[in-house]
């Protein structure tokens, strides 16, 4: 990536406190357990649903909003999120349109907001322009599943910090202890624990094997908070995951809820209520 491998100024001069105290840090400072993050795909089911969905997630009582930036080739996602990506793209969503939709959202939304997206659309937008825009509209963090730690450190760390964006890495049951420690060292918000082998998609239940893995990571006493994602779908799986972490992330199950919804606001709030009750 030498084309973008530019060095950025130290972050201290422009945004003295932004990387240390954005909404994600504040949240985890005040709430240590049963943190609920909800993922949805921007521009789905309809192009202009992005903001109404965010408002409903907040009204329903979730803690973090994770906005998926649609991509034609989401290799870490299962059929439910793939379909929502395809439909959102057919609806005409793009990163540009998403940022237009997000302009001014901070007047209504106080929750931390994280963008989850694959690298390519962001690279085409321009990584620095993207970070700048994120900061401008009020995005707090990023989850870029196809940006590995080394590439992040080499190319983007300083840039993300300059714009006050918290980067979140994934770990999975395969991730070695050594690597988890490295990831913990390079994270400064939360770690996304993928619950099992696999791409996203609502599976049912949490197995003993998964609990062993949750406990193993819990015992490592990492400095960062941990949210468990992939396969969390209801109050039972949410509560179970929360026993071994700071909370959980719901994606595919939420997408199914909005997909079948006749009244987005009501259905989203009702769904979140059943999860956190």
């Amino acid at each position: 990536m030498s084309g973008e491998r530019c060095l950025h100024r130290s972050s201290d001069t422009r945004h003295p406190s932004s990387i240390y105290m954005n909404r994600i840090h504040k949240l985890f400072e005040s709430k240590k357990n049963r943190v609920l993050s909800i993922y949805f795909t921007a521009g789905f089911p309809a192009l202009e649903d992005t903001l109404p969905i965010m408002e409903a997630i907040q009204a329903g009582g979730a803690d973090i909003i994770e906005i998926g930036v649609p991509y034609s080739d989401p290799i870490a996602d299962g059929p439910t999120i793939q379909d929502s990506n395809m439909i959102a793209l057919e609806n005409g969503i793009s990163l540009k349109k998403l940022f237009n939709q997000l302009a001014g959202f901070r007047e209504k939304i106080t929750l931390p907001v994280v963008l989850m997206g694959y690298l390519n659309p962001i690279m085409q937008y321009g990584m620095e322009a993207f970070c700048k825009k994120c900061q401008e509209v009020g995005v707090d963090g990023l989850i870029l599943p196809d940006l590995p730690m080394q590439q992040y450190l080499d190319d983007y760390k300083l840039l993300f910090e300059e714009y006050g964006l918290v980067n979140t890495f994934l770990i999975s049951p395969q991730t070695s202890e050594k690597r988890i420690l490295e990831i913990d060292q390079h994270s400064n918000g939360f770690i996304y624990m993928v619950s099992s082998h696999g791409v996203t998609g609502a599976k049912t239940g949490i197995t003993e094997e998964q609990i062993t893995y949750f406990k193993r990571v819990q015992a490592m006493k990492l400095k960062n908070s941990r949210l468990i994602g992939f396969g969390i779908s209801d109050s039972e799986t949410f509560s179970k995951a929360s026993e071994y972490s700071n909370g959980a992330i719901i994606g595919s199950a939420f997408i199914k809820t909005v997909k079948n919804s006749k009244n987005l606001s009501e259905d989203i709030q009702a769904y979140i209520q059943t999860v956190i009750k």
Partner: peptide
Amino acid sequence: YGKFGGAYIPEMLHP
């Protein structure tokens, strides 16, 4: 190879 290549993979495939 110059500007091209690398390993842009989800963490799940890292091992």
